[in-house]
Each structure stands twice: as C-alpha cells, then as structure tokens.
Design a protein around this nucleic acid. Structure first.
Length: 337
DNA sequence: GTCATTTGACCTAT
DNA sequence: ATAGGTCAAATGAC
C-alpha cells in the first residue's frame, strides 16, 4: 500500500463514501425513531436496508457492520445519556438479592462495600473480543475470576487501574448470563475518585443515568430509543481528505475523521499508511496495552473503528480485508495497467 | 523493567 | 461449612 499512493487514496475515498452513507442512514433512522416512537425492530430493518457496499459487508464478517456499529453505539450511548442503550439497575437491594440470576443463595450474599452498586446488562460484541463486553470508558484491571455456583460462566473481577495511584475504589464484576450468553451482566461498585486528581487522565463520560429495568429478552442489540444527545449530533463528522499533506511524501492519503462528540476531546481516526506517517503508531486515545482489554477513555468514533476493524485478538485483520477486497476490485476492473 | 493477566489460596459474610 | 470476593505469586507481553 505504501508504494501505491493512488490505491491508498482511492481506498480511503471509498471508506469516506461508505461512512457518509452510513451517517445518512442512521440520521434517517433517528428521525423515524423520534417521530414514531422507539422500535428496535424498525431500526434494525433500516440498518439492514442500508446500501452498504458489498465489500464492506465482507469487512465486517457475516453480519452487517453497521448493525454492529449501531449495537456498539447503543452500548456507548449510556455514557452519552442515551437512555436505553444499556439495561441499568441502580439498586443495592436488587443486586444483593441476586439481580436476575435467580439464585436464592446469592440473595444471602454480603455487601462488602456499602451497597453502592449498579448493574447493567450489556450485549456482547458481535465480533472482536466477545469474551468481554465492550469498553465502558474506564480503565479496568482484572484481579480475579471465579466460578459461581449454578452459573455456567465464571465471574470476572475488575478494579480501577488507578486504584493504587488515586485510591480509586471503583470495581466491577462481569458475568455472562446463563440463559443468554450474548448478554453480560456488569455490576459496578464504588465510584471513581481517580477523576478528581489533577494528574488523572482526562474525564470520561459520566455514568449512565438510572432507568427502569428492561426485560432481558429485549436486550439483544442495545439501541438508543431516545436521546439527550442526538445521534446526528453525535455522529456529525467532518471528513477531511488530504492527499499527500506532507510535501516530503511521508504521508499519502491521510484521512482524518473528526467526531463532534460532546466529550473530553475530539477524536481522530488516522488511517495513515506507510512508514513514518503523520499519525503516531497506535494513534488514538487508548492507552491500553497487553491484550487490548483495558480501555482508557475510548471515544465513540474510535469505537466505531474498533467495531469495524475488529481491533483486538483476531488474526483476521479486517483492515486487510478492506484492502484485499479493494485489490479484488482492481484486479477485476480498473487495475489493468 | 514494568505492567497486566492468570489462578490457587486465603478471607469472611452468611 | 459454604461460596463470593480478594490477594498475591507466577507468568507473559511489551
């Protein structure tokens, strides 16, 4: 790719076109939802009907990539005050009494840290690392895992990465539901205090607001049904395509997508290729390392990229699929000289 | 060397 | 006694 600037530029152009169409379609979907009430099925119909380029369908695997994106956006939506992206339960009593797990034994369990707990149910990512729910904007460190009585799946224990530095007491537990492995039950305990420090990382989105309990059966793909931040606002993107911004030729066909996200900062996706590009290696807000499970304040656009490009464990590098599919295009058509 | 994950052992509320 | 929650040594990735 580095040796084929035209190919790279055309590829980026293709991505921009598809993103633009996705934006249009989601905006339409939002209008439908706001105008006629919420209907997940209706939205999914719209998403399935998107004029998604066949090549990008290939990129995201068997399911529609935009379907995944909408699911991811629903999950993120809780942090954007979208009200039904996640199933949230603010109730110490509900938690301590088993919180939907149906275990009488768990109802007897203790509350070690004062009962300040909150439960969310989050759909598992459809691709990438499906073993854990998508990042919630905070940085977590896993400190334990335990098999739970009468549960098919182990429970994972996480605490705030900044626990030692800032004495942040925040913790969370993640467990798959027995009756629906596609849903994670995430229990948050304690509030983050690491954000109060002036040396702490940038402020992540606020925690999701309390909402009524949703029937688990309705939580297959969390979708925003009402919004205090409109989808179109959230998704508003200024797409800047720059062909060879650097006269020295270091970067060719760099594409920046700026999200007008009302959050800590604008986000930028760098699709630079070639050596010594304008974007640093691993560019992006995440400071994660290791296995890519920890997420430091990922932003929505980055999430979309994550969803689309399947960042994480798979050796099936989707970005390769994008451009290999583009190769096919040129092999069969334009690329004849 | 640093930091994150894994996992068996330990702690403790019930 | 039991089981959920936590600790910490071992291990691995970077």
């Amino acid at each position: 790719m580095a040796n084929q600037p035209e190919l790279l530029f055309t590829s980026c152009d293709e991505i921009i076109r598809v993103f633009s169409r996705a934006k249009e379609s989601i905006t339409k979907a939002q209008q439908v939802l706001l105008g006629e009430g919420s209907s997940d099925a209706l939205l999914m119909d719209i998403v399935h009907g998107l004029p998604v380029d066949a090549k990008l369908k290939g990129v995201v695997g068997g399911s529609s990539g935009l379907e995944e994106m909408v699911g991811q956006m629903g999950g993120r939506g809780s942090q954007l005050s979208l009200e039904s992206g996640r199933e949230v339960e603010h109730s110490a009593e509900a938690i301590s009494s088993g919180a939907g797990r149906g275990s009488a034994l768990q109802g007897q369990r203790r509350r070690r840290d004062g009962g300040n707990r909150r439960v969310e149910r989050v759909a598992a990512p459809l691709m990438g690392n499906t073993e854990l729910p998508h990042g919630d904007g905070y940085s977590w460190r896993k400190y334990g895992q335990k098999d739970i009585l009468n549960s098919k799946f182990p429970r994972c224990y996480f605490r705030c990465t900044h626990q030692k530095l800032y004495q942040c007491p925040a913790k969370k537990q993640v467990q798959r539901l027995d009756d629906d492995p596609n849903i994670f039950e995430v229990t948050y305990r304690g509030d983050h205090t690491c954000l109060l420090s002036s040396t702490a990382p940038s402020v992540p989105p606020p925690p999701p607001p309390p909402i009524d309990i949703i029937q688990p059966s309705a939580m297959v793909h969390p979708l925003p049904t009402s919004a205090t931040v409109s989808l179109s606002q959230w998704l508003s993107m200024d797409i800047i395509s720059r062909a060879d911004p650097n006269p020295d030729g270091d970067v060719v066909g760099n594409v920046q997508i700026h999200g007008d996200y009302v959050g800590p900062t604008n986000s930028t996706i760098y699709l630079a290729s070639g050596s010594g590009g304008g974007a640093p290696a691993g560019a992006g807000p995440s400071t994660s390392r290791g296995y890519g499970r920890d997420v430091d304040f990922q932003l929505p656009v980055a999430d979309m990229a994550d969803a689309m490009f399947n960042s994480g464990s798979s050796s099936n590098n989707s970005i390769d699929l994008i451009f290999s599919s583009m190769d096919d295009k040129w092999d069969s058509g334009d690329k004849k000289n």
